[in-house]
Nucleic acid binder design. Sequence first.
DNA 1: ATTTAACTGTAGCAATGGCTACAAATTTTT
DNA 2: AAAAATTTGTAGCCATTGCTACAGTTAAAT
Lengths: 144, 144
Amino acid sequence: MRPELAKKAEKPADPFRQTRSQHANETAEDYVEAVADFIESHGECRVRDLALHFDVSHVTVSRIVSRLVSEDLLITEPYRPITLTGQGNQLAKRVKLRHQIVFEFLLSLGIDEKTARNDSEGIEHHVSQKTLAAMKRFLKDKNE
Amino acid sequence: MRPELAKKAEKPADPFRQTRSQHANETAEDYVEAVADFIESHGECRVRDLALHFDVSHVTVSRIVSRLVSEDLLITEPYRPITLTGQGNQLAKRVKLRHQIVFEFLLSLGIDEKTARNDSEGIEHHVSQKTLAAMKRFLKDKNE
DNA sequence: ATTTAACTGTAGCAATGGCTACAAATTTTT
DNA sequence: AAAAATTTGTAGCCATTGCTACAGTTAAAT
């Protein structure tokens, strides 16, 4: 046995992990952001729009939308457009702002638009407030 | 209907998505990296080490290790330590290097160690070669 | 050598996110 | 108005990653 690790027991289960894993949270963020974008650019958001946007089947979208409705982020009725709840709107705003900052930060590093767009979509979910603040600082310093 | 989107059909299924989604890939990267680290720091890597490291149950680790064995990234036998295949080793090296660069990059932005460590673990998986190169450039320029 | 502790495996459950196939509703065309 | 096309929903499958509970192995202590 390796004594330096021997006494530490495995931690008990986190009851929240099951129902709202990190990955599911990222999905929620991506979806509210996309819904907000579609409403802004096309006046409404449909299941189909999200399916094309995320390149998944409409079935997958439909189920995720259902989950987010039950989590009080989205609102919809059968065969009707998808809208955001107040909570969903708040989240969308936060996510969009963060996404924008990450994107511009990558651009400011000299990365091409396409790559910056791609990478920012993955990176945004893992940028803490502190790191976001550092990126803002960097952008500000650069423009002075 | 909105004509600007009307003609684009939903794409056919990607046969790889099912068996090796993006999320599963990230898991693979995290695991080979952790295995390499444990072997380096403790001489071997056990299921238990990974369970503590990732803060999940040993059952979860056991199953993920099985998957990665079947994907020819890890090697193990029942009740025996876990080692890396050649392929696993290569992947681990790449991942560790990338992780290290992202971490140092965040530090160089003025982010505290703890935050940088945390964020780099999430961000690393989404940093493309081009963005990684930009980070390297940035670090180099700063140290001159 | 036995007992005890620690580690690992297996069975079986749940949530999430993929899919195809088919059914139903809505919208567009004719 | 009827037919056709599009959109959305439902049923039912799979893989991944969580878990608890229990069983089996290995290592440590007595």
